[in-house]
Simulated assay, not measured.
Amino acid sequence: MTRIPGHPCGATEPTRPSAAVAAATSALAEAGVGPARTEAELLLAYVLGVSRGALALAAPLTPEQRDRLSDLVERRTRHEPLQHLLGSAAFRYLELAVGPGVFVPRPETELLAGWGIEQARLLGSESEPLVVDLCSGSGAIALSVAEEVPGARVVAVERAASALHWLRRNAADRAAAGDRPIEVVAGDVTDPELLTGYAGRVDVLLCNPPYVPDGTAVPVEVAEHDPAEAVFGGPDGLAVIRPLLDRAARLLRPGGVFGVEHDDTHGSAVPDLLRDDGRFVDVTDHPDLVGRPRFATARRADPAP
């Protein structure tokens, strides 16, 4: 039988992919990892070097493949992120390299990225839009803009050295694939001197900052593997967002737009901060995939006459 965590005996006969998936699914489900079958299929496809859809046609596993799958399943049952095991995370139309030291991009953030892409496309029909992605992490937002708005000039800003490693790697990979290169800047989004050369020139400013209030219970995958500085945003979760609004107001041109992801408890707090600032108009909050408040957008007001 296929060896799974807790069952050290090895298989004496060739293991068919369907049997391997069944055993892996059982082990993952027992550990509370899910969707168990989907993850089992993804892990097996990774081990075999085929697409998930090609598993039904795959040959039986070799002993080496069986052992490798068993190791990956065991690590996943200990809640090591699936993306770390696979070495990549899907985001919109991209596969991004991720691993220890960088926040794994989430599907919810695809909505913010999509909004920013729509805004950049509107501008792209008339000019070369300048798009800035703050707290860029793996580069998910910035590289999606570069992929989907080929005429855009994109700048990605990240502070953490560990995340910068992954950002630069992904940027180099996408440039090698033919995307327009992005500019990577090492910097703190709360620094008043950040990107001063772009002040008043940015068309679209996007940010997925750390915003979870300190002390909030988070899944094991987040608590033990995502960098805390990329997750938690102070006692109320707004420690980065508050100073970020001033940076956004100074970087955006009049009429430029801003989008920022926030905690699902901030559906009123972040829009109120934008309105109270006085330099933003058209403030709107947007829900995520399950209807929770997830990101706020606004437009930089024209200067007073």
Rank of each mutant, 00 (worst) to 15 (best):
M1H: 12
N208L: 04
A36C: 08
G32D: 11
G139A: 14
V104D: 01
L167K: 14
A11D: 06
R16W: 04
V131Y: 07
V257Q: 15
G255L: 10
A230S: 10
E128D: 02
S268Y: 05
C9F: 12
L57P: 00
E110Y: 04
A217K: 06
V184M: 00
P235Y: 13
A269C: 03
E126S: 12
H79R: 15
E64K: 13
D133H: 04
A176Q: 13
A217R: 10
E148T: 09
E80D: 00
A217F: 02
L245V: 15
N170V: 09
A27H: 12
G237E: 04
S70L: 00
V202C: 01
L42G: 03
D67Q: 15
R121G: 03
E128G: 01
G215S: 08
P192R: 05
L42F: 02
D71K: 08
V154W: 06
L130M: 05
E118A: 07
G267M: 15
S125E: 14
E110I: 00
P213W: 09
D226A: 00
F295V: 07
L43S: 07
D246L: 13
L251M: 10
Y46E: 09
C135S: 03
R300H: 14
G99I: 02
V257T: 15
V132Y: 02
L48N: 13
I182C: 13
L194E: 02
A152I: 14
D277S: 13
G291Y: 13
L206C: 03
V102C: 04
G255K: 08
T62L: 06
G233Y: 05
V131C: 04
A249C: 10
S162T: 12
A228S: 09
D276R: 14
D302W: 15
S136H: 07
G267Q: 15
A249G: 11
L69H: 14
Y46Q: 13
R159D: 08
E126F: 06
G49E: 12
P235A: 11
G87D: 03
D203Y: 04
R275W: 14
G32C: 12
H79N: 04
E193G: 13
D71M: 06
R66W: 04
E118P: 00
A163C: 01
R52C: 06
A301Q: 02
L69T: 12
V260L: 11
P150E: 08
D173N: 07
L94W: 11
S162N: 05
A36E: 07
A223W: 00
E147V: 02
G291V: 02
A156T: 09
L251K: 14
D246V: 09
G137F: 11
G255S: 09
E41V: 10
L167M: 07
R37E: 15
L44C: 10
R92F: 04
A90L: 00
